[in-house]
Design a protein around this nucleic acid. Structure first.
Length: 854
RNA sequence: GCGGGCGUGGUGGAACGGUAGACACAUGGCACUUAAAAUGCCUGGGCCGGAUGGCCGUGCGGGUUCGAAUCCCGCCGCCCGCACCA
């Protein structure tokens, strides 16, 4: 069965054979084995866009290295795969090319599965599912109903991007410079009643629990912390003057109460109740608010937009000086969702407020100065860190040196003592709006009954399956205009009712798939004993672009599932360790057409900076993330057919550290292929050697082998796959030059095969079989380094003179410090530098370095 | 705009605060060959030098330290996210 008879490396022939052998031996089926420790490794599942790309290859190879390594190390491994299959592209394809999102999606899954299988990943395919399978989303609907009952879901109004020409809701990415991507119409903000998860109830807990995620990257924890955005501040009310009835007070929230005596205006959100009221009665306000509503809904658009306001003519009285009146503006940069939707501006110590104050001719009195600089603020706000002491000139305690934090504490205490407001802990995190006005998503299982209102579906009626007979020739949600699907009976009163036509955000689908993998065919969302055995995910691997939303939503969902009994208590943090991998990038080849528009070219169409077809030169632009629109993509399928899967796997794991981007180059891929061929030939040569008699060189080779085992193991454990590969290169070089006996070289070669197996499993099986290894290397136990073989007798100590390396000495590892000092001082270079004098200082770092200061 | 990250030879990168450039790729040289490909060996940051060696060098400018790619401060550039892309 093995390709031992071949005379050269032929991955195209051997890779399918080994994949068949693994399949026949049922090597990758996950089994809950109470006698073995379990290990759940998961890569973020792919969106079935149509073809796999190098980013997938890199992502899944990383997971595969971990899975194979853990399996060899005695763990019962779960390594599943599925498809994040709902989402807009399927609907877009249906609109552009006709056809049905379902056919498009399942067709893509078929193609991509077919492209992934040749990679030889150790995936338990028996657990595969797609989130658009009714079996999956039906269970999601069941959980939604449980969440609803547990008070984790509610409805409220929220704004969406509305395209007034296409009469449809647009996603943020469909809004380009304030206009609809298809119609080109100016996008408006429109309010709709939508479903929300109460994730903000968990703000404090989600924040606090970040501390326990020790095996997550610090940067991700920090990003989530900032996203949750806990702030401590003061909430209080200004009394108004000249405001309409019912608006005699405006509640504001501030994180800088210490600057209250430097306030110069009050600003409210265009969505603030007062603004809404004025809008109805004052055409000028109406015009301004309408202008604000043309802005896209993203925070980014809001922040980048010119800061604009409308003076309402209303004023408020300063709480500590009733003769002091501040104007009230409606301002386009105030969010209704955060705090109370109203702020006071202290321009001297907030750049945004300062820009606003200067634009509207408002004063900007300084509240504090730097300790040695009392220059008043002009066009740059003075915003020192809150931990830095500053001199308050308009503080609550007169002229005093305090840090911002101290002054904030003092201000809150003072205001509370005066009956002006109270301390409030606020969070930036908003509730998670899950309603989407689209067809290709999980239907929200509720009905709207004229008599009973909003009524949850009965669980026995689940799944609420998407109707197949829909058309995409008209804009908007086909479910809204479906002739029969929408009509249903009320589960409560049995009368006529209308089905909810909103579907769920696809983030819902990806917020629990990891739990479903533990029991993918269970008749309930999860099977608790299975979840208890396999959860949590021991190693989760995916892109840094998911650092906030997907991971935060999943953390919330896990808590909600624990609360509703779908996961055991220990699953509140479902991902024990997280690794965020970098992207695969490639150069971009660009030229321009006759009309001067950019034209992009695929890498295979270009050689030496020229188009192969015409010889015309192309502009070479530096590497960027592979994307179809820039055509800087390399199709893994082409690489596999040219070089085999192992070359693709080896290349994406070598060179770049996995957390950083890797640049795909054809030269690098060819080099990887050549190297694997060299290793194969080396294996062939060694396999044919007679065992021979033990030689002097055997011990050196065995030392190198044990060193390689230790180094590669440590590198894989530490996710430093590029270093593991560097060690494998080094050991391969040592082995190929070794004069050791045939028997020793065979042992070394078998070990090399085992150490390479997680990265290049097919080649490893070739080598293992050539060298008479027992069974499959995929089922062999990971080699162990013998500590006795790792200790060196001597060590080379570099000698620095004034911090620069000037010499070195070789000493026994256990030589006492005094002896090392003596030897160092006797060194020629040191004697010369000292010129007879005594060293000023002598630093000996045992086993590392000696530094002589003269 | 806000939040997070990254920056080391021609290239990808390595380096518990301790010999900067491990391991590769490209280049150059040599061997093998009628020739080419393939393969193997040597070279492989810059400058000076025949060599031993010396000086400079980790985006830029400062600082801490016996010693800084690594820690601190200030810049510059690039990348990711910003709640309806997945």
């Amino acid at each position: 069965m093995a390709s031992t008879g071949a005379d050269r490396y032929q991955p195209q022939a051997s890779e399918p054979r080994w994949q068949a052998a693994w399949s026949a031996a049922d090597v990758f089926t996950a089994r809950a084995d109470p006698d073995r420790p379990k290990y759940y490794v998961l890569e973020m599942f792919p969106y079935p866009s149509g073809r796999i790309h190098m980013g997938h290859v890199r992502n899944y190879t990383m997971g595969d290295v971990v899975a194979r390594y853990k399996s060899a190390s005695g763990f019962s491994v779960l390594h599943p795969m599925g498809w994040d299959a709902f989402g807009m592209p399927a609907e877009n394809a249906a609109m552009e090319q006709g056809g049905h999102p379902k056919d498009w999606t399942y067709g893509n899954i078929e193609v991509m599965r077919g492209q992934m299988k040749p990679l030889g990943l150790s995936i338990d395919w028996s657990r595969e599912f797609a989130t658009c399978d009714p079996e999956y989303y039906g269970q999601q609907q069941a959980m939604f109903l449980d969440f609803l009952e547990a008070g984790l879901v509610y409805r409220k109004n929220a704004v969406v991007n509305w395209d007034p020409v296409d009469m449809t809701v647009l996603a943020n990415e469909q809004v380009i410079e304030g206009r609809g991507w298809r119609s080109g119409a100016e996008v408006e903000r429109r309010e709709l009643t939508q479903w929300f998860f109460r994730i903000s109830d968990y703000s404090a807990e989600l924040l606090q629990a970040l501390d326990g995620l020790e095996h997550w990257p610090d940067k991700v924890r920090l990003m989530q912390k900032n996203w949750i955005g806990q702030s401590r501040g003061l909430q209080f009310a200004f009394a108004t003057h000249g405001a309409p009835d019912g608006f005699d007070r405006i509640e504001v929230y501030t994180t800088r109460p210490d600057t209250l005596l430097g306030a110069s205006f009050v600003a409210i959100s265009p969505d603030h109740p007062l603004a809404r009221h004025l809008e109805r009665h004052d055409p000028q306000v109406g015009a301004f608010v309408a202008e604000c509503r043309k802005l896209a809904t993203t925070e980014e658009a809001l922040e980048k937009a010119e800061k604009r306001g409308h003076d309402t003519g209303i004023t408020v009285l300063h709480p500590f000086d009733n003769d002091w009146e501040l104007p009230v503006y409606i301002a386009n940069f105030i969010l209704m969702d955060y705090g109370t939707g109203a702020i006071f501006g202290c321009p001297a110590h907030d750049q945004r407020d300062l820009d606003f104050a200067r634009a509207y001719g408002l004063p900007h009195p300084d509240v504090f100065h730097a300790l040695e600089d009392d220059t008043p603020v002009t066009d740059t706000a003075f915003v020192p860190p809150k931990t830095e002491p500053v001199r308050y000139i308009r503080g609550f305690a007169g002229e005093e040196v305090q840090t911002g934090n101290e002054a904030i504490d003092a201000a809150i205490a003072f205001c509370e003592s005066q009956g002006v407001g109270h301390a409030v802990t606020n969070y930036r995190l908003r509730d998670w709006g899950l309603s989407r006005q689209r067809y290709w998503g999980c239907p929200i299982p509720v009905v709207h009954c004229e008599r009973c209102g909003v009524v949850p579906e009965k669980k026995e009626n689940l799944p609420i399956v998407l109707p197949d007979d829909v058309s995409f020739d008209a804009p908007g949600n086909p479910l809204d205009r479906h002739p029969t699907w929408r009509n249903c009976t009320c589960p409560r009163c049995g009368g006529a009712a209308l089905r909810e036509t909103d579907t769920m955000d696809t983030f819902v689908d990806s917020s629990w798939y990891f739990a479903r993998f533990t029991a993918p065919r269970a008749p309930t969302p999860t099977d608790l004993p299975e979840a208890d055995y396999w959860m949590n995910v021991d190693q989760y691997i995916g892109g840094i672009e998911h650092a906030i939303l997907h991971l935060l939503y999943s953390r919330f969902f896990a808590r909600a599932m624990v609360k509703t009994g779908h996961l055991p208590e220990k699953c509140k943090e479902p991902f024990a360790a997280l690794f965020t991998q970098g992207m695969v990038t490639h150069e971009i080849y660009k030229s321009t057409d006759a009309r001067g528009r950019p034209v992009y070219h695929l890498p295979e169409e270009v050689a030496d900076g020229r188009l192969i077809a015409t010889g015309a030169p192309v502009e070479v632009i530096g590497s960027q993330k592979m994307s179809k629109s820039k055509k800087n993509v390399v199709d893994p399928v082409n690489i596999i057919s040219a070089f085999g899967a192992d070359t693709a796997r080896w290349f994406v794991m070598s060179d770049s550290p996995p957390e950083r981007d890797v640049e795909w180059t054809s030269a690098g891929a060819e080099a990887a292929f050549k190297h694997l061929g060299r290793v194969w030939s080396l294996g062939r040569r060694i396999a044919d050697m007679p065992d021979g008699a033990t030689t002097e060189a055997d011990r050196d080779l065995m030392r190198a082998m044990h060193r390689a085992i230790a180094d590669v193991t440590r590198a894989i454990d530490g996710f430093a796959f590029n270093k593991a590969i560097a060690e494998l290169y080094a050991f391969t070089n040592t082995l190929s030059r070794s004069n050791a006996s045939g028997a020793a070289q065979k042992t070394a070669m078998r070990t090399l095969a085992q150490l390479m197996a997680p990265m290049v499993p097919h080649l490893a099986e070739d080598l293992w079989a050539m060298l008479g290894g027992a069974g499959l290397v995929a089922q062999a136990a990971w080699p162990q380094a013998d500590p006795a073989m790792l200790v060196a007798d001597t060590v080379v100590l570099p000698i620095q003179i004034n911090g620069k390396r000037r010499s070195q000495i070789e000493v026994a590892v256990d030589l006492p410090r005094e002896e090392v000092e003596k030897r160092a001082l006797a060194d020629d270079a040191v004697l010369k530098a000292l010129a007879g004098g005594a060293p000023k200082k002598l630093i000996v770092v045992p086993g590392r370095i000696v530094n002589v200061v003269v």
